[in-house]
Nucleic acid binder design. Structure first.
Length: 655
RNA sequence: GCCACCCUAGCUCAGCCGGCAGAGCAAGCGCCUUGUAAGCGCUGGGGCGUCGGUUCAAAUCCGACGGGUGGCUCCA
């Protein structure tokens, strides 16, 4: 009960800098927290509540396998031991919740002072002593009255007791119905907690060398920003030291892949103080990658039956009134600017303007479906605390498209978008996907019946394809339900990319119509979709997925020519000209460095191919090919190398 | 926005309990002309995020603001 799984999201934290959430790709309509969120088996300290948390919230032990249940028990028990250690130091400390989470656990406290990293070391020491004391965990059922007495000095526990006793919440943290009369408590040594359990039998079953406290962070009581902020200590614990080390290594690996770090190291992008937070500057090498993505994107969209459009970046207030943005989205929009006495807003979404194009003339049912795509840059005000690298920004480009169709076409269109999305994502090297159906949020427009109808349409589309998916309750956009697709990267983390959103709000607000076969006017259906999400976030995902070592077709520099001595420079330029003619992106390193240093530099820049040019190559007209994976392919004729590189590009291979 | 922490040369980072700033890498220059992850030397470069306090004296203490990091909340 008390220490049931966290109400909100919960995340592991780590010593090393890591990733985290970002704005969702969609039309911005975020909702899904990605970023660190990318849960999943392999890694995923960053496992969060939201969608993934469902199994947790659903009851704690429902993690599936027996082993996971056992790990949960271990983590939950370790959280209790930590709480005791904290109370030893702060006898007046107040307890919040302390659940197990993906890869670890946390416990929230209200303490007289802020914790420091140094405190963690002392808490760990005390935890070790409690573990070595091998105290038994004892379970008891007590009445609500007894509990109120027992936790008289624990206001948060009393709060929880009240909620349970009044039936506001059940012991699994779900909205309850039946008031509860008995409560479950667990004790060990000098610590007792209101808790559903289960726990280990004894503290001694916690491996002393396999746990670690990772960080301290603020967290609102019950995840409600109107409630007091508690101090949350994140920790991790495993069954063996090897598992702990492995986990810590994964955290470090994630830190090594951090797109912000790689973005600077590889000179891909930056965020400038003087310009403003959350606003991305794409450096030449990052921009090269972006252009490759964009060119591929345009090409695929044209093949996929889309027309390309462009729309303005700002629009009069009335446009956003009609669209409903000023009613539903204003807090996320930049303040208006006055132009000749008229208010203009920077666009937070592309859809209204696309609708204006639609409305520029009468439309016939024969024209539908219309599929209009645009790489539309939007700006949204995001609270400062949520900004993060490329993942959550204030200005970004959505690979947007809007499909206007007849009701009888909508399912096919959604299916089409779904397939299109997967093929697009696969092209960029993503193989595993997680699919979510996001339903009606608290704040929504339209009538519930239409929402239900739309959700059923999306469900049917999903089911027609036989794709496994999860429900993201309340995660829909204000104007309609949606399907979200997240890709899993090389570390198993999930990144929000595709969003396919049903919209029956805008067609109505803008009074969109088409003339049907019957000569009457009908209201069309509209689907918004973004496949990559936003170019910024997608780029961030790509960087981390590839750890900066992009496949040849995306690599900003595909080949570095390395003349061994000055006398080989001329030959290098000659080869460079040939490669350039073959449209390869290359650089000649004609600096005074030794070959070794040149190779090292190219390695650090993660350039796929290094061509070493010395006397031997010059004489035979060849190039010595070294791959960035360290492999030495020996001398190849220039033409052969070109064929090799071009095939890697054509097939979008790594090398 | 909230809690905590951080902000020293382009980058990574040292500068303990206050006394007028250092290293490595990078950069520029020079020597070497070199076969698969760093050849050697020299030189330039910051006044310690900004503003304001405390002090005889602050990069080192306090405060505000800005930016960042980890979470929380939010995310049409």
């Amino acid at each position: 009960m008390a220490c049931r799984y966290a109400p909100g999201k919960s995340m592991g934290r780590r010593v090393v800098p890591v990733i985290r959430p970002q704005e969702d790709g969609g039309f911005g309509f975020s909702s899904v927290k990605i970023g660190w969120n990318r849960v999943s088996q392999p890694l995923a300290p960053w496992a969060r509540g939201s969608v993934f948390g469902t199994s947790h919230r659903a009851g704690g032990q429902t993690m599936g396998s027996e082993q996971e249940g056992q790990l949960d028990r271990l983590r939950h028990s370790t959280a209790h031991v930590m709480a005791e250690a904290v109370l030893e130091i702060f006898p007046e400390g107040k307890l919040g919740f302390g659940p197990p989470i993906e890869n670890g656990f946390y416990y929230d406290f209200d303490l007289p002072r802020s914790l420091t990293i140094e405190d963690l070391a002392e808490i760990e020491e005390r935890m070790k002593r409690i573990i070595e004391g091998d105290y038994p965990f004892e379970h008891r059922e007590i009445s609500v009255e007894e509990a109120r007495v027992l936790f008289a000095n624990q206001p948060y526990k009393l709060d929880q007791i009240d909620r349970l006793a009044s039936g506001q919440e059940d012991e699994h943290g779900e909205a309850g119905s039946e008031p509860i009369s008995t409560l479950s408590i667990y004790s060990h040594h000098n610590f007792t907690d209101l808790c559903r359990g289960p726990h280990l039998e004894r503290t001694g079953q916690i491996p002393v060398d396999a746990f670690k406290l990772l960080s301290v962070a603020g967290a609102y009581w019950r995840g409600d920003e109107h409630q007091p902020m508690l101090q949350r200590i994140y920790g991790t614990v495993w069954e063996t030291k090897e598992q702990l080390d492995d986990y810590l290594w994964r955290l470090e690996e994630a830190a090594r892949r951090d797109h912000r770090k790689l973005g600077r190291a590889l000179d891909l992008f930056s965020v400038q103080d003087l310009g403003g937070p959350g606003l991305i500057c794409w450096h030449p090498k990052g921009a090269r990658i972006r252009r490759i993505i964009e060119e591929f994107w345009y090409q695929e969209h044209e093949r996929g039956g889309y027309e390309i459009v462009y729309t303005p970046h700002i629009g009069r207030a009335e446009l956003w009134n009609v669209s409903g943005h000023l009613d539903f989205y204003r807090e996320s929009m930049y303040a208006p600017m006055d132009v000749e006495g008229q208010e203009y807003f920077i666009k937070p979404m592309n859809c209204p303007y696309q609708i204006l194009i639609y409305k520029s003339r009468r439309r016939s049912y024969r024209e539908l479906p219309l599929r209009w795509a645009e790489l539309g840059t939007v700006y949204r005000y995001e609270r400062s605390g949520v900004l993060h690298g490329l993942l959550r920004v204030r200005g970004f480009t959505i690979d947007d498209a809007h499909i206007v169709c007849r009701p009888d076409q909508v399912e096919d269109e959604i299916l089409g978008v779904y397939d299109f999305s997967l093929s697009m994502l696969r092209a960029f090297g993503f193989r595993d996907f997680a699919i979510y159906l996001a339903t009606r949020p608290d704040k929504f427009v339209g009538v519930p019946e239409r929402w239900d109808q739309a959700q059923r349409a999306l469900e049917r589309a999903l089911e027609a394809q036989g794709l496994p998916y999860e429900i993201d309750e309340g995660g829909g956009a204000f104007y309609g339900p949606k399907i979200d697709i997240k890709v899993k990267d090389a570390l198993g983390r999930e990144w929000q990319t595709t969003t396919i959103q049903f919209d029956f709000n805008l067609p109505e607000r803008f009074e969109m119509t088409y003339v049907g076969e019957d000569g009457q006017e009908h209201q069309p259906y509209m689907v918004h979709r973004a496949l990559l999400g936003s170019l910024e976030r997608f780029f961030g995902a790509l960087i981390e997925h590839y750890s900066g070592a992009f496949p040849v077709w995306l690599a900003p520099v595909q080949v570095v020519l390395i003349p061994i001595a000055d006398r080989h420079n001329a030959y290098a330029y000659e080869v460079a000209a040939q490669l350039k003619a073959a449209r390869l992106r290359l650089e000649v390193n004609d600096s005074g460095d030794r070959m070794q240093a040149k190779i090292r530099d190219a390695q650090l820049e993660k350039v796929p191919y290094m061509l070493i040019l010395g006397d031997r190559e010059m004489e035979t007209g060849t190039v010595a090919v070294r791959l960035r994976n360290g492999q030495d392919l020996g001398d190849l004729a220039v033409a052969d190398f070109v064929v090799m590189a071009q095939s890697a590009i054509a097939e979008k291979r790594d090398l």
